[in-house]
Design a protein around this nucleic acid. Structure first.
Lengths: 232, 232
DNA sequence: CCCACTTTCTGTCAGTTTGACAAGAAGCTA
DNA sequence: TAGCTTCTTGTCAAACTGACAGAAAGTGGG
């Protein structure tokens, strides 16, 4: 036992970057430029740069390099995916992260190596879109995490810009959960959760109908009472 | 870039094994038998055995080797702890797992190398008990995970034996959350959550007072309605 | 056997929250 | 000005919550 040596593995970081575009939840995918799975769609990610790089730092680096998201979106660890054989290059342990991007102007900002696209998560989950490695599983776990956290945390505000209207926030809930909500009851519930959202000045956002009041994310991260998604 | 090679790291598995003894939440700790931190208290765990060992398999192996829990308690991944410098032996990435052990007869079953003890989590969280590496942080995350999951999942039943009474289940909630609950309202809430617990035959468990009906874990893992821990 | 005691279990009741829906408010367009 | 859209404020019955009374069913002591 004294001459035994612990095995060494490759450490990668993968990103599930979610956003809401239109009324659908979308995930950022890149086209792989190298083997294995060259040309296939995959999550943004890559190996640890060196032995001194912190894992969160590596996640932020990939977020900027591959997705062009330099500012600071919500980023949290999601899980570890290290099944032997998931990568033909050897034993690769991937630390998946979940990132939430606010609604962006339109296309993804210019990325380094390959092209990147927003794709509806439903296309990934249903198998209509094939992904490299076990990335479909990782996307599924990320989406499930986001759905759960919307109930009890203020994560939904991370999908919105600096300021937002209540109906924009409602669109986030509807897109992520895939349900329809009553605007009037949603309005009441969101307001009741103390510290979830706070008014952002007297300015209004014009639209097709009556202009809406603007809000920004409040100081609270744990919703009380929570936003229960009822058994529709 | 083509001659660049990804760094290789050591992969470890650590276990936060929780149980309820008496009325306090406790965690299993072992005394380290080797450097670094020889003699200090730490979480059970160890390195991946070889390059073909699955991570969940390594967690189950440590669960049996170091804690003597051969049967199948609840086990789920908790998080990754891989800060550079957390282990003087090199870059060690630890995949922490959360395990829930049912109430055990009395002491921990005989363990392989060193001694193992149940310790109150409060002693760890308050710093009264010093732990090796960043294990105090890992314990804190595990306890927080357990507290949160008690609200929305049927995790509490994993702290109980095959069959249990409703007041035993209540003791789990009280120990994990560190609060006092009204037995009558608890009784009602637990029964209302469809599929959470199901009656286990006509036999009763005698005690100091009126004998209690026995239940076992139901088929449902997501509680509806959830067990909200109110703002006491 | 009867009484005190403990714990389990079944109700009750007022206050709050929920889901469904009506209707007013405030802009834009024709 | 009329018509349309969307935001915002209410209303109301049903369900849920927290606090608490009290019956049910055992144990142990005299």
């Amino acid at each position: 036992m004294s001459d035994w040596e612990a095995p060494r593995v490759l450490l990668a970081v993968d990103l599930v970057i979610l956003t809401v575009r239109g009324s659908t939840l979308q995930v950022l995918l890149v086209e792989r430029g190298v083997e294995p799975f060259e040309g296939a769609l995959a999550l943004p990610g890559g190996f640890l740069r060196d032995l001194d790089e912190d894992i969160p730092a590596a996640a932020r680096r990939e977020l900027e390099e591959e997705a062009g998201l330099a500012d600071e979106p919500h980023l949290e660890p999601l899980g570890v995916y290290g099944e032997p054989g998931r990568d033909p290059r050897g034993r690769v342990i991937s630390v998946a992260h979940l990132a939430i991007a606010p609604r962006l102007p339109e296309p993804v900002a210019g990325t380094d190596a390959a092209e990147a696209w927003w794709k509806p998560v439903d296309d990934v989950l249903s198998g209509r879109l094939e992904l490299a490695f076990d990335h479909r599983r990782i996307v599924a776990d990320g989406v499930e995490r986001a759905r759960a956290k919307l109930e009890h945390s203020a994560l939904a505000t991370a999908f919105c810009g600096e300021t937002f209207t209540i109906s924009e926030l409602q669109q986030v809930y509807e897109a992520v959960w895939g349900v329809q909500l009553d605007p009037r009851n949603f309005y009441r519930k969101v307001q009741r959760a103390q510290g979830f959202i706070v008014p952002a000045g007297p300015s209004l956002r014009p639209g097709n109908g009556r202009p809406a009041r603007l809000f920004r994310a409040g100081p609270v991260h744990t919703l009380n009472p929570p936003m229960v998604r009822s058994a529709h």
